[in-house]
């Protein structure tokens, strides 16, 4: 599996003075994966993305892009990288064609292939009819598309998009999302957002960051839509004691809370209540629910979260 990992972050840490912005972030992205980076405001999403794209030097740790270290040979590694920061880095005084031509040159695309690369990027981002318009005169949505075109013009293996749909109207959001899904087929995409349905709509995998730490990493279909049992105890038992029939996985939440992942059709509620009574766990809450990303998110970011690894 390692051979087709396109981007790999190892122990990425960033401190601003005494403040820890991102701590020990590990991340591996394979070809064709769309990874959603979720987190509340100020969780460290943008800092992580800046480090992944070489815009910010990590305090410790390294990023490998196709096995090339961003620290040791940044120019070589950045060839395989496209980045759309939170605000599209566009020059309002240039036309779309002039701007994209410059970006192509910056990424080392030869003069002969440049026109073709610009045309392809414009077609992919629905900009063809805007070619000779000044970027400053375009709407926010179109400027965002120009930013996106800039990130894909050199057909990088890894595309990093920081909140690509922020400030757009609902129709533009849908268009950008379908574009990202389209891109995800041929490139690897890392996408950050704090809008949950967006992540659910386009990402195959999700990572949740809270207070600079990775608290959740799973494939979306692995956890979502499955039934789960939420239980809270006054005297928390060991996780191994909760392995009733039909329980696939036990997650430990904050304050004596447990999340039991259930197999289809399983319902160990009666069994759990019996065990709780016999062993004196002091059952406080028991509820059967279908987990949505939003619930996972709220659970993990609104308390002392522990790191969970998904299957």
């Amino acid at each position: 599996m390692d051979s087709d990992s396109l981007i790999e972050a190892r122990g990425l840490t960033r401190r601003y003075g005494p403040n820890l912005a991102v701590g020990d972030l590990n991340l591996t992205l394979r070809k064709g994966e769309v990874l959603g980076l979720l987190g509340p405001n100020g969780a460290g999403k943008s800092t992580s993305m800046k480090m992944l794209t070489g815009n910010l030097a990590p305090t410790s740790g390294d990023v490998l892009i196709r096995g090339i270290s961003l620290r040791e040979s940044p120019q070589l590694a950045k060839r395989h990288l496209g980045y759309l920061p939170e605000q599209p880095p566009v020059y309002p005084e240039l036309t779309v064609d002039e701007y994209l031509g410059f970006c192509a040159g910056l990424h080392g695309i030869g003069k002969k292939q440049r026109a073709e690369a610009v045309a392809d990027a414009k077609r992919d981002c629905g900009l063809t009819h805007m070619s000779s318009r000044l970027i400053g005169n375009l709407s926010k949505g179109y400027q965002q598309r120009v930013g996106l075109a800039q990130a894909i013009i050199h057909r990088p293996d890894v595309i990093v998009l920081d909140e690509p749909t922020v400030g757009l109207d609902p129709i533009q959001i849908r268009e950008i999302r379908s574009l990202i899904a389209e891109l995800g087929k041929n490139h690897s995409v890392i996408l950050s957002s704090h809008i949950l349905p967006e992540i659910q709509a386009v990402c195959g995998r999700v990572m949740i960051i809270n207070a600079g730490r990775l608290v959740y990493d799973a494939h979306i279909d692995a956890h979502l839509g499955k039934k789960g049992l939420v239980a809270q105890f006054a005297n928390a038992p060991a996780a191994s004691e909760l392995q009733f029939t039909g329980v696939q996985k036990v997650d430990i939440g904050p304050a004596g809370r447990f999340l039991l992942e259930l197999a289809d059709g399983a319902d160990p509620r009666a069994e759990l209540v019996n065990a709780a009574v016999q062993r004196g766990w002091g059952l406080l809450e028991l509820r059967l629910e279908t987990r949505t990303l939003e619930e996972i998110f709220v659970e993990l970011t609104s308390g002392d979260a522990t790191l969970r690894e998904a299957a």
């Binding site: 120019q75 950045k78 980045y83 939170e86 605000q87 880095p89 309002p92 990424h107």
Partner: peptide, 14 residues
Amino acid sequence: KSNTLTLLFSAPVS
């Protein structure tokens, strides 16, 4: 100020 420096910093140039 207009955040376009990011474009140059993320490009494969020194």
